[in-house]
Structure formats: C-alpha cells, structure tokens
C-alpha cells in the first residue's frame, strides 16, 4: 500500500470535499479508510489547516484604516497628477520621432550602397573578352552599357541553343584573365561528342577531361581547336561557346 500512499499524499489536503478530480476522490475514498498511515496524515493536516483558519491576521482598528485611506489617497492623487503630466513626455517622445527614424534610414542607405558596389549591378572587373565573332552585325556598335549586359548575359550558362553571335558585342582584345570560364558546347548533328550542351568551368576542365577516355579526350580537344579555327567558337567574358 506504500506506493499508493506516496501517490495520494499530495491529494490528502483536499480530501474529501476539496478541489479534487472525480477519479482522485474515488481513489482516496477507497484507500484512506483502510490505511492507518494516511488516516493519521490526514488528521494532522486537518489540524494544521484548522489552526490556520482559527488564527487569521487580526483586523486592525478603524483608526488604522482611516489613516491607511488618507495616506493612500494622497499618494494616489500625486500619482494621478504625475500621470496627467505624462502626455507631455509622450509628445516629446513623438517629437523625437525623426531621430528614431534616422538610424533605419541610414542603415537602408548603407545597404543600398553596399548592394550597388558589390551586387549584380556593380562595375565588373576583368571585363568580358570576346575572342572572336564570325559575323559582326550592327548590334556591335551599340552602347558599351549594352555590351556589358550582353557579356553578363553570356556568362550565364544557357540550356537552349547558343545565342546568335551577332548579339554578343566585340570589345577590343584584352588580355584574357577570366576568373571563371564556362565553355558551352552545342554540338552539331553528327558530331562525335554527345549531342548536348556542356558547361565546363575552366578549373573543372581538367576534371572533365580526366573523366574521359583517351579517345574521347582526343576527339574533344580536336573538336575545340577546330571550332576555334573556323570561328564557330565564341569566347566571351568567362564564356566560350560553340553554336
């Protein structure tokens, strides 16, 4: 029975008509009458509760409450007067609003500048280099801004057929120091390599070649050289494509 006693002890102060769930009442009702230890514990707890109820804090004299009310009234009036003065503080806080808005505005400005300097719209170092254009068109004479955007667009690997070479501007030949080079190969029908585009970054080219057999490697490199020679290979800013 001891485990039941341990479980039920916390419910004992409420037995039999206290704040107990129905199952707790039933359990206690079936256990306590047959358990001497719990009966004794219950009797002692009831004594303590009875002693507490029999010894409330004595109610002070009416004079005490009179003085209490007077003191408190003065404090409340003072607090109310201070509370009426509070709106001035509120208005001064609203007056400070521009200063509070200043910090977020500066943060937004700094963010904008950072994005402009380092983001997609930033001026590009090591500008695009288009090695060769087989059939230049009047589009080449467009503004440098357009050339920049075309070069950037060309830097994005495309799954569709290679863009017309005419759309790619031809800036003057610059030393080619591409940080990243993509080689897009769109193979013609009947070409020895698989008929699909391949995007190969420069530093991945070796890895790409390493994955080929000697025969495939030979065919691939020959094909690349040949296409460079016949002009069907276009190299732009970090971009080289065959179309």
């Amino acid at each position: 029975m001891k485990w039941q006693c341990a479980l039920l002890k916390r419910w004992l102060p409420e037995y039999p008509d206290g704040d107990l769930p129905a199952w707790g009442k039933r359990w206690l009702g079936s256990h306590v009458p047959g358990c001497a230890a719990c009966r004794q514990e219950l009797a002692e707890l009831r004594q303590v509760i009875a002693a507490l109820e029999a010894a409330p804090v004595p109610d002070p004299a009416p004079e005490f409450w009179g003085e209490f009310s007077r003191d408190l009234h003065l404090k409340l009036v003072q607090a109310a007067q201070e509370g009426q003065a509070a709106p001035e503080a509120t208005s001064s806080r609203w007056f400070r609003l521009p200063y509070l808005l200043g910090a977020p505005a500066v943060a937004v400005l700094l963010l904008y500048v950072a994005v402009q300097l380092t983001g997609p719209g930033a001026p590009i170092q090591n500008q695009a280099v288009v090695m060769h254009l087989p059939s230049p068109t009047p589009a080449q004479d467009q503004a440098p801004v357009k050339r920049e955007s075309a070069a950037k667009m060309a830097a994005v690997p495309q799954k569709s057929a290679a863009p017309p070479a005419a759309e790619v501007a031809a800036p003057p030949a610059l030393p080619m120091e591409p940080m990243e080079q993509f080689v897009t190969v769109a193979l013609e029908d009947g070409a020895p390599l698989p008929v699909e585009e391949a995007d190969i970054s420069a530093w991945d080219l070796d890895a790409e070649l390493a994955g080929m057999t000697d025969q495939e490697k030979h065919v691939f490199l020959n094909n690349m050289h040949q296409r460079k020679k016949d002009g069907s290979c276009v190299e732009g800013f970090s971009f080289c494509s065959w179309g």
Partner: peptide, 12 residues
Amino acid sequence: RVNYCQALKTLK
C-alpha cells in the same frame, strides 16, 4: 497544489 501540500507538511 504540490506547493500547498508541501507547505502544510513543512508547517506541521
């Protein structure tokens, strides 16, 4: 509830 029960026991 647990606090109350514990308090009564301690008081006792």
